[in-house]
C-alpha cells in the first residue's frame, strides 16, 4: 500500500523495503541489511534531501 502511494507521488518505491525476518534468523537479517544498503547506495541520495519543495 505504502509503495503504491509513494508511486502516486512520484517517489521511488524501492527506497522502502519490507521483509519479514524472525528473531532467530540472524544471518538472513545481516544479508538483507547488506542488500538494502547496496541497493540504496546505487539509488544515491534521496532527492527530497536537497529539494526545496517550492
Amino acid at each position: 500500500m505504502l509503495k503504491k502511494s509513494l508511486e502516486s507521488f512520484g517517489i521511488n518505491k524501492d527506497r522502502v523495503w519490507f521483509r519479514f525476518i524472525s528473531a532467530s534468523e540472524g544471518k538472513t537479517f545481516a544479508e538483507t541489511v547488506n542488500q538494502m544498503v547496496q541497493s540504496l547506495k546505487k539509488l544515491g541520495p534521496n532527492p527530497t534531501w536537497t529539494a526545496w519543495e517550492l
Binding site: 502511494s5 527530497t48 526545496w52 519543495e53 517550492l54
Partner: peptide, 24 residues
C-alpha cells in the same frame, strides 16, 4: 543545508500521510 526551505515545512509529508491513512 539546502540553501532555502519552504515554510511551513513537511507539506509533501502531510499529503503522503493523509493518503496513506485514508486512501482506502
Amino acid at each position: 543545508k539546502k540553501g532555502v526551505i519552504k515554510m511551513p515545512t513537511d507539506t509533501m509529508l502531510f499529503h503522503l500521510t493523509r493518503i496513506n491513512h485514508m486512501g482506502l
